[in-house]
Simulated scan of single mutants.
Amino acid sequence: MEESSYVFDNKPVLQVSNACIFQEHRVVLEDVHFSVEKGEFVYLVGRTGSGKSSLLKTLYADLPLKLGEVEIAGYNIKNIKASEIPYLRRRLGIIFQDFQLFADRTVDENLFFVMKATGWKDRSKMKKRLSDVLMRVGLGSSGTKMPHQLSGGEQQRVVIARALINEPILLIADEPTGNLDPQVSSGILDLFREINRSGTTVLMATHNYQFIKEFPSRVLKCENSKLLDSQKEDFELLTYL
């Protein structure tokens, strides 16, 4: 996408009201209310099966919103058309723990694929943007490598570079360090924090209590079908491990 990144007024990047979040036909979170302002760094925690991933998938329209309202990056998820979903996701950076890289393509080819799929056409601008995002994640010389030639931490940095291609207003990360060892995980968190300091909003699901202990920030916690917010109430973080 060759247009500049989407610019908001003072509205929250994300606003959720009266929402119910489903896993298939079962409600996992009910009466969900929260908003995320531009530039915030927010952790999302909760036990396995508590609704974290379902909430995130609902936010980027991978799961339908059946009840309630969600406005994200300028889109109303309740009424979003299938044809609008790719445009929504250009405004979001979505990061998974299982990388989802094409194993038979180089790093550069993986990123070029995303750029073409999201509307980039000018080859020289594509090359410059690709170079910029790889440098930003510390992989400036890795463009010609295949994914299997990279460590797990390096592969996750490629995924983060891919998510940054279109200058997203919001990064949504679902357990991005879940498959990485502690030292590598710490480096990935540092990268997320640097990205956040540059102005990008970050919503990150994690099981890593050490992250929250070392770098405190706002926490949303999925528990007993409710979403608790550390801005509004005190709760015990350790119980989600």
Rank of each mutant, 00 (worst) to 15 (best):
S4R: 13
Y6Q: 06
N10Q: 10
L14H: 01
L14K: 01
V16Y: 03
N18E: 12
R26H: 13
V27H: 06
V27K: 11
D31Y: 01
H33R: 05
E40N: 01
F41C: 05
V45N: 02
V45P: 10
V45S: 01
T48P: 00
S50I: 07
G51E: 09
S53P: 10
S53E: 08
L56N: 09
L56T: 10
L59R: 06
Y60K: 07
I72A: 11
I72S: 05
I72K: 02
I72L: 08
A73P: 15
G74F: 03
N76D: 14
I77P: 08
K78S: 12
N79P: 04
I80F: 08
K81P: 11
A82L: 15
A82W: 13
I85H: 04
I85W: 11
L88G: 14
L88P: 11
L92R: 10
L92H: 08
F96I: 08
Q97W: 03
D98I: 05
F99W: 07
Q100V: 11
L101A: 05
F102W: 14
A103C: 07
D104V: 01
R105F: 05
R105D: 13
R105Y: 14
R105P: 12
E109N: 02
E109L: 00
N110M: 11
N110A: 05
F113K: 06
K116G: 09
T118S: 12
G119Y: 07
W120A: 14
K121I: 13
S124G: 02
S124T: 14
M126G: 14
M126P: 10
M126Q: 14
K127A: 15
S131L: 03
S131Q: 10
V137S: 09
G138S: 06
L139N: 01
G140M: 03
T144G: 09
M146I: 00
G152Q: 01
E154F: 00
Q155C: 06
Q156C: 06
R157S: 03
R157P: 02
I160S: 03
A161W: 04
R162A: 04
R162M: 00
L164G: 01
L164A: 00
E167W: 00
P168V: 01
I169Q: 04
L171Q: 07
P176D: 15
T177D: 12
T177F: 01
G178M: 05
Q183N: 13
S185R: 06
S186C: 00
I188E: 14
L189C: 08
L189Y: 13
D190G: 08
L191E: 15
E194N: 05
R197K: 13
S198T: 14
T201Q: 06
V202M: 09
V202G: 01
V202I: 13
Y209W: 12
Y209R: 11
E214C: 09
F215G: 05
V219P: 12
L220C: 04
E223L: 03
E223G: 04
S225M: 15
L227G: 10
L227P: 06
L227R: 00
L228R: 08
K232D: 13
D234Y: 12
E236V: 02
L238S: 14
